[in-house]
Structure formats: structure tokens, C-alpha cells
Amino acid sequence: MNSVLKLVAQRIALGLLLLLAVSILIFFGIEALPGDAAQAMLGQSATPEALANLRHQMGLDQPELPRYFHWLGGLLTGDLGKSLTNGEDIAAAIGNRLGNTLFLAFWAAIFAVPLAILLGLLAARHAGKWQDKLISGVTLATISLPEFVAGYLVMYFLAVYWRVFPSMAMIFPGMSLWTKLNTIALPVIVLVMVVLAHMMRMTRAAILNVMQSAYIETAELKGLGPLAVVWRHAFPNAIAPVVNVVMLNLAYLVVGVVVVEVVFVYPGMGQFLVDHVAKRDLPVVQACGMIFAAVYIGLNILADVISILANPRLRHPK
């Protein structure tokens, strides 16, 4: 058990180091971009004096290195700074948006992950037959459709033509859970379509790989039925590769939803980020970047840890 703890601690330490490296990239990368908030607020016709004044007010004329450490210190204490454009506290503004994004990602994952694994198991069980080809064909078609096309397609059919769900996914505090779910149905459907194929294909491949093993023959010769063989003997050995892909897709559900949020006017992180990039509101963009990076790295660490725990050789050393 000790060696497992050591491995897990190693993964977490590496993740933190990676996050620090990412913070350097995000801060200086975004600083290096041309233009700043003062320029964006005052427009092209601003006089150099007005620009210099505003920059001084916003603290943009300070050297970069001290500003980085000040920013990093703020991050560590939970203070993300103030928005340059409207002076709002970023942490409070993002908190609400992040909650909405996680809400959407959560419900997309609740449907997508079990569905993908189930379809993967079914496809593996009928490998090479029409069921397999149908499942692969449909999921590959949905992943091949760009998100905005898929978004407008489901909007056309489900919101305009059949009027099952609303086309705008505007949610706000005070809505009941049921109303909220009804409201986000369309973006959830699109997200499920986008992430399904990847996880399904990996489950199928991992299961088929395991099905070649001698212990699968042992299970068949015990008289177990095909589903029991797959579920009890193949699946436990296919967890590690599947978990890695599941986590990559969960991360995508959080950090890659910009297009879907914009299409459905959903008040999440993606839209928030796009708005503030347009306004050159660097502290907000930097904070969003850090949160996305943290989610991404965190989920990948989680995948690593689950893979380690799923391996009996690591869990129970000799």
C-alpha cells in the first residue's frame, strides 16, 4: 500500500509543478499579446496621455515580474483580482459562471460516460457484425459534425420543428432543477454527441484487446454467458485505458465548451472568457486560463490515480 501512496503523491506533486509552469506561460503569454485593456476601453482615437493615465490607474505600467508574483500570491489565497473593465471582483463573477459550466458538464457526463461504455461493450460483443458497424458509424458521424452545425441541427429539429426543448439555454438562480435540466437539454445533447465516439471506441478497443487473453477462454470454458464474460472478466482489465479517455473527455466538457455555450447563449465560463478576450481584460482571461488548466491537470491526475488503483500488481505488491 505504501508504494501506491508514494506513486499517488508523486503524481499530485508533478501536477502542482505543471500548474506552476502553466501559470508562468499564461501570465507572460497573455502579457505579450499586443494591445491592453486601456487601449480597448479608450479605442483607436485615444491620446497617448489618456492611455498612459489609464494604464497608471490600472497598474499596467508596473514591471512584469513583481506583477506576476503579486498575481500568483493572489491565486494561492483565492484572490483573482479585479476586472479591469468594470472593477468587479473576478472570483465572485467566475464562481457563478464556473458553477454553470460544471453543471452543464456534469449532466453531459452523466449521460455520455455510461452510454459510451455501454455502446463500447455492445460493439465489442458484436465485433465485426452489423451492430458494431452501426454503433461505430453513428458515433463517428456525430463526432465528425462540427459543434456549431450539430448545435443548430438539434436546435432546428428539437426546438423549432418539434418544439420539445427551448433553444436558448439561459439559466439563472432560482430556477427549479427540473426547469434547469429542461433548459440545458439541447447543449447536453450536443456535448454527448461530441464526446461519445472517443470513449466508445476506446472501450471497444480495450475490451477487444482483453478478449484475446487466455483467461477469457477460461471464463468461457466455465460456462459463463457472453455478457458475464465481458462484464466480469474483460472489463476489470480494460479500466485503465478507458478511464484515461473518459477523463480527457470530461476535461473537454469543462474547457472545450466555448462554441456550444455561445451557440446556446449559456452563461458559462466559455462565453465569459470570449467576452473578456474581446475587451482585453487580461486578469479575467488569465484567471479563466488557470481554472481551465487546473481542471485539465486535476482530471488527468485523477485518471492516473484510478489507473494505479485498478492495477492489482500495484495495489497488492508481492
Binding site: 487473453s213 487466455a214 483467461y215 477462454e217 477460461t218 471464463a219 468461457e220 470454458l221 466455465k222 460456462g223 459463463l224 454467458g225 472478466h233 476489470p236 482489465n237 485498478a310 492489482p312 500488481r313
Partner: peptide, 25 residues
Amino acid sequence: GLRALRGREVTYVAQSAAAAFNPAK
């Protein structure tokens, strides 16, 4: 019918037990 007899009437011992046991159980 085959599943009913496999494991109940006839059982099998493989050449490589190392490969024939499920490593996860």
C-alpha cells in the same frame, strides 16, 4: 446446453496458468 455442461460436467486446465487466471481477481 453447452454453457450448462462447460464447468459442470467437464472442466479445463490450461498449459499456462499464468495467462489463464484473470490478473484482476
